[in-house]
């Protein structure tokens, strides 16, 4: 009787599978289908959401209820198919399968939300709008929302990059040069901890435009943490690194650019992360108070009309943008700091 090692058996099975698929499509495709409980469960949850939209009449006037219902059916079908045919769909199928428990929770939440708002009014209107009224914002008020999002991104990017660049350069200079430290440190201690939003009233008067005032404030909010952390990063570089570089013939400019700055980068990224959070806060407040554009302004405007569905819709967009910005920052960090062991994944 022949004996096989585990790997041989596995490779035999693998060969057979690929052979079957290569041989003839239809029937073999069916043989690779796997019934996934979580996948079907998630599909059912979305199906329930769609049905809940259609089963009872709306207690208000929401034109998008049917569209939402049919979209939910489509999603339910998509989840069920993707998880069942997971093996044949490769990466996409795996991704859906891995997220199936979350998709289930989301479907269940939407069903509950639909029932407690649009159908039975357990939650008071208009403070808790149903899902279809938020979808309605995206379908009917999209241009305005996009304009606002674009304005926010533009304002945020400008301020953030100015603040990050100035903060980085300031941090390196005070970490490196005693003279720079002597002059800049007291100013930093005096102005830095002040919340940037406290400058708002003055900034809007002294700057030529609300736009430039907000850019300045976002830069200020970003610059402080970036400065402090870059500084502490540069100051905490082990002197052994400098000794090594100096004995190998390094000049001071080399010590700054090739020793101090790379060694300080992990700290710099903590500063950039904190600065990003602080700058979001300033951005929204500035848009609510002075700038006549952006998602903060949109929120304020929607509140004026008591249209809460617009506010929720804007909040979701805002959340996606902020989360996306942090994801991007972490991607850049992972690229630059591959040499570090065990960096936190976002």
């Amino acid at each position: 009787m022949p004996t096989y090692s585990a790997s041989e058996v596995a490779s035999l099975r693998g060969d057979r599978e690929t052979a079957l698929i290569a041989g003839d499509g239809g029937l073999q495709f069916v043989s690779r289908l796997r019934f996934s409980i979580t996948g079907v469960g998630a599909g059912l949850a979305w199906l329930a959401f769609g049905l809940s939209c259609l089963r009872w009449p709306d207690i208000g006037d929401w034109p998008r209820t049917e569209v939402v219902a049919y979209t939910a059916f489509a999603i339910a079908g998509g989840i069920a198919i993707a998880t069942t045919a997971q093996a044949a769909l490769g990466k996409f199928g795996d991704g859906v399968q891995r997220r199936a428990p979350w998709l289930f929770a989301l479907g269940a939440f939407l069903t509950l939300w639909e029932l407690s708002t649009a159908k039975f009014g357990w939650l008071p209107l208009p403070f808790f709008p149903p899902p279809q009224s938020i979808v309605e914002v995206y379908t009917d008020d999209l241009p305005k929302l996009l304009d606002s999002a674009f304005a926010s991104v533009k304002l945020q990017l400008g301020g953030y990059f100015i603040g990050a660049a100035v903060g980085f350069l300031t941090g390196v200079s005070i970490g490196w040069s005693r003279l720079a430290g002597y002059w800049v440190h007291p100013i930093l201690r005096f102005i830095g901890p002040l919340p940037a939003t406290a400058w708002l009233p003055i900034a809007f008067f002294t700057f030529p435009s609300a736009w430039s005032a907000s850019t300045f404030l976002i830069a200020l909010a970003t610059g402080f943490p970036v400065t402090v952390l870059t500084w502490s990063g540069v100051a905490s570089v082990s002197s052994a690194y400098y000794d090594v570089a100096r004995t190998l013939g390094a000049r001071p400019s080399f010590l700054v650019t090739k020793v101090a700055i790379p060694a300080a980068l992990p700290h710099v990224f903590v500063g950039l992360f904190m600065g990003l959070g602080a700058s979001f806060a300033v951005l929204v407040v500035a848009e609510m108070i002075g700038v006549k554009a952006g998602l903060g302004f949109y929120l304020q405007w929607a509140q004026g009309w008591a249209s809460y569905n617009n506010m929720y819709a804007a909040l979701i967009v805002m959340s996606l943008l902020c989360s996306g910005a942090i994801t991007l920052l972490f991607k850049v960090r992972d690229r630059l700091l591959v040499w570090q062991k065990g960096v936190v994944k976002w």
Binding site: V244, V259, P262, Q340
Partner: peptide, 22 residues
């Protein structure tokens, strides 16, 4: 030195190249 004090952000090649680069 007693500790290798390699620059952790540089690969082995880049660490060895340090002197010539400087």
């Amino acid at each position: 030195f007693q500790d290798p004090t390699l620059f952790p952000w540089r690969t082995v090649w880049d660490n060895v190249a340090l002197g010539l680069e400087a």
